[in-house]
Design a binder for these strands. Structure first.
Length: 576
RNA sequence: CGGGAUGUAGCGCAGCUGGUAGCGCACUUCGCUUGGGACGAAGGGGUCGCACGUUCGAACCGUGUCAUCCCGACCA
């Protein structure tokens, strides 16, 4: 490709609406252009990168025995009603109507459609196990798209679905995918960690997310991990072990005391001169539009996803002050945030965290402003709790549930995930096969996703410097750029052209920067775009030499043109 | 959906005490220059997001609307 004809426009300044590095660099280097919120044009350079990633995914999926197909992204409502997700999925599902007012959606994922395909095509245990996948555009009407390609409303995803006769088979399929994923991301130049996570809207029994660990804020999830035993989990799924803490308030007498204006735990601790670990904290959440009272030891925070699961809901948010006020009035109390207690709210769903179990002689609110009860005890002073849950947000420094060593936390970008679905879809959608005895049995299913566009963005987040992108060779849009510095110098131009032609003949993806620009412009563009290798043909050609520069290391080798060609071919082969 | 902000040329921005639009980058042509985003000259490109209103006159004032971005709750 000649640079003068390449469809690319590099920008000197960051676009005003970009705030993460991958968004800035991909925009500036001419890879993407936003069409509307969360929707991007993938320009030629970007498309080459995406195809590279897709092909790595394809190769690894195929070699693990999966078969590629392509499902429609326009999906009928009826299918989603069969699985029950038409209601559950909520506003994120991009819904539309056809000319006959039939309701449809643009697929955010394809469990329903693949289950439809499987129940028609897989009839016998002899056909199992079976793994089908596609690489296709997905739609999710995100509340707030942001971070460029990291969170779009339209994005490219690889989604695979496995069908097995039993759980043992599913375990095997799951393991095969886990291994394939590790290879895929490795080949893309990304170090990932498989972390346990909540199963979310997809549902199912067990899931792992593949996270690119980052130190920047571009990661959207907190990942807790243990260096000692390898435990790793999303914060919404981390079960940490707490250090010994005082949980007995030591109050010998149960009474109501004045605690004016103690609207926060901090103020209450100060007022009573006690640690937060002897205070019972109550927080009102709205789960599926109904109020839920979450109780937890006050030195800890509630993890909302855990709470949502404990309450059996699909949607969770913290209650507003107005909602709390209204709730209190309905129950005949005059209390605001900070003074909410469980007594008298028994008709609500009350979810208590495990940390509450061991509390004694503690401090609790009593639904009355500016006072608290001290010396309170379970069952006696607050309603009996049937069951305790883990709804606690883990913190760094707490201990690993597997080996007891301290946990660390970091940010992560989720580039892939794998789920054990079990019969969550096959049962309600009546997707069955006949076993050896001729009996109809629902499939044991698994599903496995990889965000193709997100993987590309994550690679930029991981691999860049102040000059631009540093693509891993395997997913770079082109391998090498050949840069003659003076287009008026015939020797330079002819040498560059000859190098370029030799590279093309050797099957190397090369660009010739034939523009009549000054050296600085060409260098800046080459760095920004992120070509892994650059062959510079400048003045030193009079001594018979050119330069080969490796973008990642900055290393420069001075070689004659033929050696530069063979050397760069060697480097590229090594890297892929 | 709550809170905050912004819409002026492809990109980044100024103009907003009302008088019919400008700067830098990019683009075109010529000259000059050619090892890290040179320089000079001459150009092309904008119904100032949209609608209504106030006014002799609106990018500027008012109302409404749409879009975009940032902060909170979701996810590959």
């Amino acid at each position: 490709m000649k640079m003068s004809k390449l469809f690319v426009q590099t920008l000197r300044e960051d676009p005003a609406d970009a705030d993460v590095i991958s968004h800035k660099l991909l925009s500036r280097a001419g890879y993407i252009r936003k069409l509307t919120s969360g929707v991007y044009n993938y320009l030629p350079l970007m498309w080459r990168v995406l195809k590279k990633i897709e092909n790595i995914v394809r190769e690894e999926m195929d070699s693990s025995g999966a078969q590629e197909l392509l499902l429609p992204f326009l999906q009928p409502k009826e299918l989603w009603e069969e699985s029950g997700r038409w209601e559950v999925y909520g506003k994120e599902l991009m819904r539309l109507q056809d000319r006959h007012n039939r309701e449809m959606c643009l697929g955010p994922t394809a469990e329903e459609v693949i289950t439809f395909v499987a129940r028609n095509g897989l009839k016998s245990y002899k056909q199992l196990p079976c793994n089908l996948y596609q690489i296709q555009t997905k739609f999710r009407d995100e509340v707030r798209p942001r971070f460029g390609l990291l969170r779009g409303r339209e994005f490219i995803m690889k989604d695979a679905y496995s069908f097995d006769t039993d759980e043992e088979g599913l375990d095997k399929s799951y393991k095969i995918m886990a291994d394939a994923y590790t290879r895929i991301f490795e080949r893309c130049g990304l170090e990932t960690r498989a972390v346990q996570s909540d199963t979310g809207a997809i549902g199912g029994k067990l899931s792992h997310e593949y996270m690119v660990l980052t130190t920047t804020d571009s990661g959207e999830d907190d990942v807790f991990f243990c260096d000692d035993c390898g435990y790793a989990a999303n914060s919404n799924h981390t079960v940490s072990v707490l250090p010994e803490t005082q949980t007995d308030g030591g109050f010998t007498e149960t009474k109501i005391v004045d605690t004016p204006q103690t609207t926060t735990i901090e103020k209450l601790c100060e007022c009573l001169n006690i640690p937060a670990s002897v205070i019972l904290k109550c927080v009102v959440y709205i789960v599926d539009k109904k109020p839920v009272l979450a109780m937890i030891r006050a030195d800890k925070q509630v993890e909302e996803t855990k709470l949502m699961n404990a309450a059996g809901g699909n949607d969770v948010r913290i209650a507003s002050e107005a909602e709390i006020e209204e709730l209190m009035q309905q129950h005949g109390f005059n209390a605001s945030k900070g003074f909410i207690g469980p007594k008298g709210l028994e008709d609500l769903t009350i979810i208590a965290d495990n940390t509450v179990k061991d509390m004694k002689n503690f401090v609790a609110a009593v639904n009355k402003n500016d006072v608290h009860m001290v010396g309170a005890n379970l069952d006696v002073d607050i309603p009996h709790i049937e069951k305790y849950y883990d709804i606690r947000l883990a913190e760094a420094g707490e201990f690993c549930p597997q080996c007891g060593k301290p946990l660390k936390v970091t940010r992560g970008i989720e580039v892939g995930n794998i789920f054990k679905l079990g019969t969550k879809y096959s049962k309600p959608m009546n997707a069955v096969y006949l076993d050896k005895n001729g009996k109809a049995v629902p499939f044991e299913m698994g599903c496995y996703g990889i965000g193709i566009t997100r993987t590309a963005a994550a690679a930029v987040e991981r691999w860049h410097d102040e000059h631009g992108i540093i693509w891993p060779v395997a997913i770079a849009p082109y391998h090498v750029t050949v840069v003659p510095l003076n287009d008026k110098d015939e020797l330079q131009m002819n040498t560059a052209k000859s190098i370029y032609v030799k590279l093309l003949k050797a099957g190397i993806e090369a660009v010739l920067d034939d523009r009549s620009e000054r050296a600085g412009v060409k260098f800046k563009d080459a760095d920004l775009i992120g070509f892994p290798y650059r062959i510079t043909v400048g003045k030193t050609i009079t001594d018979g030499n050119v330069e080969l520069k490796t973008r990642k290391t900055g290393e420069v080798e001075t070689l004659n043109p033929d050696n530069a060609v063979s050397r760069v071919i060697e480097l590229i082969k090594e890297a892929i």
